[in-house]
């Protein structure tokens, strides 16, 4: 597994190296959002003194290599009434975690799904799936749905509700 991680890191570093100054400027101009004008990519292009087709093709390339996860609207889940933010954690067999993690990640109500390290004996959980629900009962039902999907691979689980935001800063990338 360690080799796979090193390999993945190398791939990521190569991708960073593939970005040139123009890409970095595009990232800088779009990381807080796309302009709300009829031709948003042309708007960015003009600010950089290049063609809109260049901006579009560069962003397409960044999407293909995963630097852009997706271009989309992100709802404020609190404002939409999803007030119960539950971090579900699962102890699943390591040898099956990739396959299981992908299945759990495909569920619509799961916003983040990761494999993270255990700390035995006190922390046995290796799969994390964040669920958003209107209240705690609904979140527990969603957890049960994940449990059904995992079946006998669920060797133990828990849910941690957030009770207070202690700090939240927007992530900005310094490029």
């Amino acid at each position: 597994m360690k080799d796979a991680l090193v390999q993945q890191e190398q791939v990521e570093m190569e991708q960073v190296a593939l970005l040139d100054d123009v890409d970095r400027k595009i990232i800088d101009l779009t990381q807080s959002g796309l302009p709300l004008v009829s031709r948003p990519y042309e708007n960015i292009a003009q600010r950089l003194g290049i063609n809109s087709s260049d901006v579009i093709s560069r962003m397409k390339a960044m999407k293909e290599n995963g630097i852009i996860r997706r271009i989309a609207a992100v709802p404020n889940h609190y404002a939409l009434g999803y007030k119960a933010n539950g971090m579900t954690v699962w102890d699943v067999p390591d040898e099956r975690i990739s396959e299981l993690g992908k299945k759990v990640g495909e569920l619509d109500f799961v916003s983040h799904c990761y494999h993270r390290p255990r700390f035995l004996p006190e922390w046995p959980y290796n799969l994390f799936a964040m669920v958003h629900a209107h209240d705690h009962d609904e979140a527990r039902k969603l957890m049960a749905t994940i449990g059904e999907l995992l079946g006998e691979n669920d060797r133990g689980h828990d849910i941690l509700f957030s009770t207070k935001i202690l700090k939240k800063t927007g992530l900005r990338f310094n490029l």
Binding site: L36, A73, P75, N76
Partner: peptide, 28 residues
């Protein structure tokens, strides 16, 4: 569409609209 999108962002029903970058791939 543009007006409504702008309102949804102003009233914070949407927290973001645009490209989501993978911060880790950007070197973080």
């Amino acid at each position: 569409l543009l007006e409504r999108l702008s309102n949804l962002l102003d009233e914070n029903t949407l927290s973001r609209f645009g490209p989501m970058y993978d911060a880790q791939k950007l070197g973080g």
